[in-house]
């Protein structure tokens, strides 16, 4: 492949990853939970773009529709069922955040610098899967029993939604 093209791709990947990391930081640090949920949706959207770039369109579609859509709706619904924070609780949260999160940049720096040394050696590439192996054949063939489990798990999720919005008698 053309080295200039690869360098451009590398730069693009790093920009996307930086945006994703910023979204994750906003998710855990924003005071208002609704804004945090929107930041999480932004993280999911950037992850979806990364998946498309890495040639995983089916997973990207699921990520966009389920993680950026459904989970955000569920989360905002859950937040709307909770009373908004009082002024005292907001002040306590700001104090708590500055006291508890001051180590986070240091942790990120240490992990990043440490891993840049660890991942310096390229790994050998294993053999690729045979041509013609498609997602649908993998889903419906060797992993058909897993799909049954997924259906059961989804039913449990539906039950959870019913319990979430159940009216009190």
């Amino acid at each position: 492949m053309d080295p200039t093209f690869l360098k451009q791709q590398l730069l693009m990947n790093i920009i996307l990853m930086g945006a994703m990391l910023l979204g994750a930081l906003a998710t855990v640090m924003l005071r208002q939970l609704v804004k945090a949920a929107i930041a999480l949706a932004f993280t999911s959207v950037v992850l979806c773009v990364v998946m498309f770039k890495l040639n995983a369109p089916w997973a990207a579609v699921f990520e966009l529709s389920v993680c950026a859509g459904l989970i955000t709706v569920v989360f905002i619904s859950a937040v709307s069922l909770v009373k908004p924070a009082t002024e005292e609780e907001r002040a306590a949260h700001i104090r708590f955040k500055t006291r508890r999160y001051f180590l986070l940049p240091l942790v990120l720096l240490l992990v990043g610098v440490g891993l840049s040394y660890v991942t310096g050696q390229p790994l050998p590439l294993p053999a690729a899967e045979p041509a013609g192996t498609e997602l649908r054949s993998l889903l419906w063939g060797p992993r058909a029993l897993d799909l049954l489990g997924q259906v059961l798990v989804l039913l449990a999720g539906v039950w959870g939604v019913v319990m979430l919005f159940k009216e009190e008698k």
Binding site: N55, A56, A59, A128, L138, G160
Partner: peptide, 29 residues
């Protein structure tokens, strides 16, 4: 991507997303 088994990785990601959403819904409940 690195191993060349992208279809299998996508199948796992779809499974992960399904389980993730159920965990989140149950936890929110």
């Amino acid at each position: 991507l690195v191993s060349g088994h992208m279809a299998l990785a996508q199948a796992f990601v779809i499974t992960l997303i399904v389980i993730e959403v159920v965990v989140i819904v149950a936890a929110a409940g």
